[in-house]
Design a protein around this nucleic acid. Structure first.
Lengths: 123, 123
DNA sequence: GCCTTAGGTTTCTTTTTGTATACTACGTTT
DNA sequence: AAACGTAGTATACAAAAAGAAACCTAAGGC
């Protein structure tokens, strides 16, 4: 019924306040344990980190390796399948960078970067 | 400090429950007025439609043409700049379609399509 | 027999999103 | 003169997502 209709699916995987930054970390650092991710993203809570990682794991983007030790050790990494997202993530990133530039041209360099909510209703 | 760090920006433009379907409509139908969009997307409320369109307008993806008539007439269309998103939207779409297939292989064809929230915590 | 550690889970509160419904402006039609 | 139609806005409310903080587990060290 339509090509070009399921990109919502792709978005679902990326949405969630923390997924982009988690993916960024894992793509650039390789394998990381839970506590390393926490240190790398200090503002995130354990709850959010766990939740977002579980969602990424469900989608086979992230692998979770549990070492049965005390104290526990759990390592996260991008799966082989997940590495296939690199291209599209890079494309999104490039577009985003260019878009910030575009917004600067439109509104000047001192606009708030994301005022798309709650103002700018014309008079 | 990092390439590959601003794709959040791209996502910000796409997130919002209704943006994908609004963009889909405008890309495939060309110019549409407010009421046509409402008819095309019956579940959306006026408030949400207005809000999402305003955000897309702010980002220069959508153009808003106001005809000063009574009753009012307002037409929406994708800007020239916005047309530059088609490639990346198509890429996201293609990846999304392939990803649904991938999930089918992993979990069988009868899994709920987006259970990434609120279950599947391992026992 | 209490403390520490790592990787969580639980519960509660706040914030953000989305829905539902009503109301407006103003010329045209009935 | 009341009703209609368009493109909204305003207000109230419900639901979903995020945040904060406390609690849990089990082994080893003191």
């Amino acid at each position: 019924m339509s090509t070009f209709c399921k990109f919502e699916t792709a978005l679902e995987i990326l949405v969630g306040k923390w997924k982009p930054v988690i993916l960024l970390r894992l793509f650039s650092n390789g394998t990381m344990r839970f506590s390393e991710l926490q240190k790398a993203i200090p503002e995130i809570t354990k709850k959010m980190l766990t939740q977002q990682l579980r969602e990424l794991e469900y989608h086979d983007i992230v692998h979770r390796e549990i070492y049965r030790q005390i104290p526990p050790k759990v390592e996260y990494s991008i799966t082989e399948y997940g590495k296939g997202m690199a291209t599209i993530l890079q494309a999104l990133n490039d577009w985003g960078v260019a878009h910030i530039e575009h917004l600067n041209e439109l509104y000047g360099p001192n606009h708030s970067v994301e005022p798309h909510r709650s103002d700018a209703m014309d008079k």
